[in-house]
């Protein structure tokens, strides 16, 4: 299996597109940091509020959210934590990071994960389909290796590439922050359920990045399945990207029906349990993880069945 994965990895890096996507990701991150900085500079004149005023306003808003009785447990905890943190900051004179600081950039790096998803989908949708369109599938399947092993090696290579993209995202975000924003004097505070403690912004950023990787993983797997079933990379990539955008919108349409709880895109964003933005309220992290795993098993089963049963006539 190691040798097969090595093969897939070699083929992946022999194509220019894999390099281009990494470079493009880095450029997008650097450019967006530069633009944010530039917009900031031109608006800074009007911004005279002190951090204490901002924090107070936020605290009042979060307190008002807590009065809503329909909040889910996760959301209630989130707002309680936010209020506690704000109180702690004002009492002890601990300013937060400015939003245009390197540290805040690292914490928010997961916001750009949609780019990683997009590039992962391009690789995932093409990695099997390309063998068919190039005709190399005949060479690949007439070897003393069972088909499921070949498919597995392709899946592993795809996911390794996705992980690499996420790592690049994290590192380049930090570098872009250093170049364009600079280091803030603020502190990172977090609510551990009972008290406010100081935390590491690196760990917070990594945690959110790992959580949002769930969406890269499941949408990548979906594209992988489509590429395997339809043997057409453009169909697989196009359909996956289309569903990625419309799928999340559909969560809002379905929000009032029971079925939304079993719908994939309700659960793809695991960071919702930490950022307080939950379109469907009565779901839990455990439930999301279970739903994602069930979808994963279905996608993989379809991929393996079609790939190992198919008569190759291309």
């Amino acid at each position: 299996m190691l040798k097969l994965t090595q093969n897939e990895w070699m083929k992946l890096w022999s194509r220019k597109s894999s390099w281009i996507m990494i470079i493009l990701l880095a450029l997008i991150l650097l450019a967006s940091a530069a633009i944010t900085k530039w917009v900031d500079n031109s608006m800074d004149m009007n911004n005279t509020e002190s951090w204490q005023e901002v924090e107070t306003n936020e605290m009042i808003y979060n307190q008002s959210m807590l009065e809503d009785n329909s909040l889910s447990e996760a959301q209630r905890e989130f707002y309680e934590g936010e209020v506690a943190i704000s109180e702690h900051r004002l009492e002890n004179d601990l300013p937060p990071y400015e939003y245009d600081s390197m540290q805040q950039g690292v914490i928010d790096s997961h916001i750009m994960m949609s780019v990683v998803t997009l590039f992962t989908v391009i690789i995932a949708g093409g990695i099997v389909a390309a063998e068919f369109s190039q005709g190399t599938i005949k060479m690949l399947l007439t070897r003393p290796v069972k088909r499921w092993k070949i498919l597995t090696s392709k899946y592993i290579a795809t996911m390794l590439y996705a992980i690499l993209l996420a790592i690049v995202l994290f590192i380049v975000t930090a570098i872009a922050g250093l170049i364009f924003y600079g280091i803030s004097d603020g502190t990172f505070l977090t609510w551990n359920g009972s008290e406010v403690v100081e935390g590491s912004f690196w760990l917070e950023g990594l945690k959110l990045l790992a959580l949002s990787f769930a969406s890269v993983w499941i949408i990548g797997t979906f594209a992988f399945m489509l590429g395997t079933v339809f043997r057409s990379s453009s169909l697989a990539i196009g359909l996956s990207i289309f569903l990625m955008f419309t799928g999340i919108q559909a969560v809002f349409l379905l929000a009032n029906y029971e079925i939304v709880k079993y719908y994939l895109f309700t659960h793809t964003d695991l960071t919702q349990y930490y950022t307080g933005f939950m379109p469907v309220e009565d779901i839990t992290m455990t439930m999301s993880v279970i739903v994602l795993i069930v979808y994963f098993i279905i996608f993989m089963a379809i991929s393996y069945l079609t790939f190992s049963k198919r008569d190759v006539t291309a």
């Binding site: 090595q6 093969n7 070699m10 083929k11 022999s14 190039q134 005949k138 060479m139 070897r143 003393p144």
Partner: peptide, 25 residues
Amino acid sequence: VIVENPEMYKYMSGYKNLLHFSRMH
């Protein structure tokens, strides 16, 4: 096996193609 035109990975060198297939045996 040579099935019809031997389709190879065009974006890799001949050597890498052989290396690729050799790893499968």
